[in-house]
């Protein structure tokens, strides 16, 4: 079943002065999903996040939250959005609790929420300390607590694991999962690391040089890489083999003196290749199938700018 998107951008363009940043970005985030927004640094992730929050004005196109136009109903729509953009905005001269309290007053949220969100991110014991004494991980968690204050339906988190240690990253992941499964939140989380996203996201969007080069569910992304499986062939002399079997080794590249890489086509093709190689008198030291990792797929997507948007 195709759900109406909770967050949608239509033909979003943005440029800083004459420098174009985003080209025709059409995001589609379904309710109840964790949307991993991936891309290398400088690809336009933060700019997109800022556009989603109405911090920047799009050059063309529009942002729709909960089915309504962001440009027309910004204040109303932001009531249901919690966000953490880049490094959290913390007032160092205030305590952790006062930091939460400042945003609580600003949003007109009930007073008991301050203690609740501090508890939720595990900062209740340190809430009396000034924010300037907080570690990077604690600051990130405090930022998340502030984003969760109004119990928002949509959470926008820009690189939330920045500066977290491995334990912190695992805790953050657990928290995001819990927020989705137990509280029905829709979460957009940006990152430049696929390994971080693949463990938690249900959907993925990949951005490269301001263009969305992939968008779909995580299984879709996993399927994309099966077409890119690679056969690795180890022999004595790679060049000789390629000259002897020009048809079977048509798509092969020489990766080393005795190593050939070729795209995996079929089981029959593999068997035929092995037989032909032995028949030609060449030694066959190894023949194996390599599945590219999601990371390879991600790197591939962000290198070739393939037009894979669905």
């Amino acid at each position: 079943m195709q759900l109406a998107p909770l967050l949608e951008t239509r033909g979003l363009h943005f440029h800083f002065g004459k420098r174009p940043i985003l080209h025709d970005v059409n995001l589609r985030v379904e309710p109840g999903s964790i949307y991993g927004f991936l891309g290398p640094n400088g690809a336009g992730k933060s700019t997109t996040m800022r556009l989603l929050l109405g911090l920047l004005r799009p050059g063309a196109g529009s942002v729709h939250l909960f089915g309504h136009d962001m440009a027309r109903h910004r204040v109303t729509l932001l009531n249901r959005v919690g966000a953490l953009i880049e490094n959290p905005s913390l007032y160092d001269h205030l305590t952790g609790r006062e930091n939460v309290e400042a945003t609580r007053r600003l949003r007109g949220v009930a007073a008991h929420r301050t203690a609740e969100v501090l508890e939720l991110v595990g900062l209740a014991d340190n809430a009396h300390r000034p924010a300037r004494e907080y570690s990077l991980g604690m600051r990130q968690r405090l930022g998340l607590a502030i984003a969760l204050l109004s119990n928002p339906d949509l959470l926008l988190l820009d690189e939330p694991t920045n500066g977290l240690d491995p334990n912190g990253i695992i805790e953050m992941r657990e928290l995001l999962r819990r927020l989705r499964q137990e509280h029905g939140k829709t979460i957009v989380v940006s990152s430049h690391l696929i390994n971080e996203i693949e463990k938690v996201a249900t959907h993925v969007g990949v951005i490269q040089e301001g263009r969305l080069v992939f968008q779909g569910s995580l299984p879709d992304l996993q399927r994309l890489q099966t077409g890119r499986a690679r056969l690795v062939l180890e022999t004595e002399d790679a060049d000789t083999c390629r000259n002897l079997l020009p048809r079977l080794l048509a798509g092969a590249t020489v990766a080393g003196a005795g190593t050939l890489w070729l795209p995996w086509l079929s089981r029959e093709h593999t068997a035929e290749l092995a037989a032909a190689l032995t028949a030609a008198g060449q030694p066959l030291y190894g023949l194996r199938l390599e599945q590219p990792s999601l990371e390879d797929t991600f790197l591939h997507l962000t290198e070739v700018k393939a037009d894979l948007v669905q």
Binding site: R50, L53, G54, L55, V75, T76, L78, N79, V81, A83, I85, E86, N87, P88, S89, L90, Y91, D92, T103, L106, R107, I146
Partner: peptide, 12 residues
């Protein structure tokens, strides 16, 4: 100092 403008303007 708190880089809080982005936060402030993202509030309702």
């Amino acid at each position: 100092k708190a880089t809080a403008w982005k936060h402030l303007y993202a509030q309702p």
